[in-house]
């Protein structure tokens, strides 16, 4: 399906490229969008959003979430006592999430 998507969409681009006009008269036309002004500075700058901690948190909690799936899909075959380690795991992760969210919510440090 992925490959089919590529295979089906590439011709659309090719056709579009063929039948669309291509006029290279004006170099200003190909400048990046800067609201009618000539762009100042580099487009790909060193640019840090204040929300960088969320992406760090994502990496860790993504792992946690998919670990939970390994447990959740096997839950019906597990004894009830087996829930306890997972609860411990969850508790630890939540314990970590609270300071992490506190840190990432602080405004001036990012």
């Amino acid at each position: 399906m992925f490959a089919f998507g590529i295979a089906a969409m590439a011709p659309a681009l090719v056709i579009s490229r063929m039948i669309s006009p291509r006029k290279r008269s004006n170099p200003v036309k190909f400048l990046p969008m800067e609201c009618g002004q000539v762009p100042s500075g580099e487009g790909r700058t060193h640019f840090m959003m204040q929300y960088y901690p969320y992406i760090l948190m994502f990496v860790v909690f993504d792992v946690m979430a998919i670990f939970l799936y390994a447990w959740g899909s096997a839950l019906l075959e597990l004894p009830k006592s087996a829930t306890l380690p997972m609860m411990g795991f969850l508790a630890i992760m939540f314990g970590a999430m609270a300071p992490a969210l506190y840190l990432s919510g602080k405004r001036r440090i990012w």
Binding site: S16, R17, I19, S20, R22, K29, F30, L31, P32
Partner: peptide
Amino acid sequence: ISKEIIIPAK
């Protein structure tokens, strides 16, 4: 599909 595709410089 018939519009020109403009690619920004650089």
